[in-house]
């Protein structure tokens, strides 16, 4: 009984995380220029890599979201999300540590952007934990 409730909660969280990533991906595709600038503002990568990542990353997010909802390639999707959120965590942490006054680039559809700070870091930690839970579950279901 308890397992069933836990499974349902996890399924709900899975759909939630999928919706977040699909929305984030679409918003970046709509405003590619803003997203390039947001990624570039982190000052972690050369500009050529920034442009390539800005082209690919939104689609990785969207595909992960779609696959999560569809329940296809569950392990690979969950693993991709885990890696993705881990990379975001590192990027956000280093930006905060360097005192960068930038927007996070998580949802590039807002003109004013969402300012980078500890709130974003906490949100990303939550996403990372959720991705981890989904990955563990998919491994268990194997």
């Amino acid at each position: 009984m308890q397992n069933r409730i836990w499974d349902r909660i996890l399924l709900f969280l899975q759909w939630l995380i999928a919706a977040i990533f699909i929305f984030a991906g679409i918003s970046k595709i709509i405003n590619p220029g803003t997203f390039v600038r947001d990624v570039d503002n982190y000052r972690l990568l050369p500009y050529l890599l920034v442009t390539i990542i800005a082209i690919i990353l939104p689609w990785v997010e969207i595909l992960c979201g779609i696959f999560l909802i569809a329940g296809k390639w569950k392990k690979g999707t969950a693993f991709s999300l885990l890696v993705l959120t881990f990379i975001f965590l590192i990027a956000i942490s280093t930006a905060i540590a360097r005192g960068l006054d930038i927007t996070c680039g998580c949802f590039s559809n807002t003109v004013e952007g969402i300012r980078l700070g500890y709130t974003r870091l906490i949100e990303d930690v939550i996403l990372f934990v959720l991705a981890g839970l989904i990955y563990m579950k998919s491994k268990k279901d194997q």
């Binding site: 990353l57 990785v60 595909l63 992960c64 696959f67 390639w73 693993f79």
Partner: peptide
């Protein structure tokens, strides 16, 4: 198999992107 799936996701995303 998991890594293979993840790589496929990235490849498809690259193509679509």
């Amino acid at each position: 198999k998991t890594i293979k799936e993840a790589i496929w996701i990235i490849l498809v995303a690259t193509l679509l992107g």
